[in-house]
Design a protein around this nucleic acid. Structure first.
Lengths: 200, 200
DNA sequence: TGTACATCAGTGAACGCGCGTTCACTGATGTAC
DNA sequence: TGTACATCAGTGAACGCGCGTTCACTGATGTAC
């Protein structure tokens, strides 16, 4: 058996990580398979040893965020989904709607970077996107329940509203030209989300 | 002088309207100038009599929504910005977060259809996008002030939150595969927006 | 009223280019003996 | 321990194709006389 057992798997992971960054920054159509493979230190032909086609790479790239760059981000923010704390929702809101997240074109959440691209893609990609949203809503819901001040129904309702505010505020801020309005909407969404997380 | 004075202007408007619909449905990169011109009943060469390049067409298409399809939409919803009523915010929320709007791939608001595309575009396009958001926030703000229960600062704050909820809820619902979660987040964003519009 | 003309919106072939994908191959690797 | 071999990850030329843009032209039109 040539090459070590996990050689191919590591190469595949490297391709996916390069793809995630490039798609985040430039979008699905602009990024070519050549660009991704060159970024990973490979040539184009090898791509089809790892993926059926470009769309499958896109799915893998969106999926990879949750346990990859997203996990790093949660760790840095002191968020541990395994041990949900009452203040977890507040920490997530603060990090998600932060200026740092807005400026992080490579590391940002794909829900902000790629909504239009995913909306036009096949169901597989949309399912990967939905997993990100489901995870976010789940974390919010768990955290709000920890605070034990509201019923399960209210916690889920609030979690969905928080997700819409976080993603909506950031998508708008990202899309506006560099301006006061971008900061104003991000800050206002942030304050309102924190208010909801605490007041509910 | 050949052709009637407004002949060229009408042709241009027809191209922009076809472009708006096609961009809304398929995105900036996928839609070719050939497609747009064919849809308008013309051939590709004539395009550059009207526009400097593809990006200028994109700017015009995004801009056109406010006074074009968007105006039709407002009229159908009984919204008259010239005579702002206290219930205007509620009407806008109901229409924007409706299942009909979600299903209207051709006529939907470009803020929902094109955020990623615009975020990657030149400042001219982003400015056109910002004008849509500014108009939406302005209408919310005016309507909330009409209700005369809150200060100007609070009205602006609430208007920004409503915009983030409307766009965020719809962007997420549009991106998810056809599912219960899409309806759940749209309905929840709708109910929370109505609550905010009335409770503030 | 009728005709010759100037204008310019619209045509369609052509340009260079990069795309996604295929495929015959190469050569680094772990295994067998 | 050393060598021959089989495997298959990776290579790079090639495929057909459609893109944005250019440009020499055509022909429908309103005007001048």
């Amino acid at each position: 058996m040539p090459y070590s057992p996990d050689h191919k798997q590591k190469t595949r992971a490297r391709i996916v990580e390069c793809a995630r960054i490039l798609f985040n920054r430039h979008g699905y159509e602009i990024v070519s398979i050549d660009m991704v493979m060159a970024e990973a230190g490979l040539t184009r032909g090898g791509f089809y040893n790892h993926f059926k086609n470009k769309e499958e790479l896109f799915t893998a790239a969106v999926s990879s965020f949750l346990m990859g760059r997203g996990a790093q981000w949660r760790a840095a923010a002191g968020i541990d989904p395994a041990n949900p704390a009452p203040e977890m929702a507040s920490q997530m809101i603060a990090g998600y709607l932060s200026p740092e997240h807005l400026g992080d074109l490579d590391g940002q959440c794909p829900m902000i970077a790629l909504p239009s691209d995913v909306a036009r893609s096949k169901p597989e990609v949309q399912t990967a996107y939905q997993e990100l949203l489901t995870a976010m809503v789940g974390l919010f819901e768990t955290s709000l329940k920890e605070r034990a001040k509201e019923s399960s129904n209210d916690a889920r309702r609030s979690a969905l509203v928080l997700a819409a505010l976080c993603v909506g505020g950031m998508v708008l801020a990202r899309t506006l030209p560099n301006s006061e309005l971008a900061d104003e909407i991000r800050n206002t969404a942030h304050d309102e989300a924190q208010r909801l997380a605490y007041a509910s």
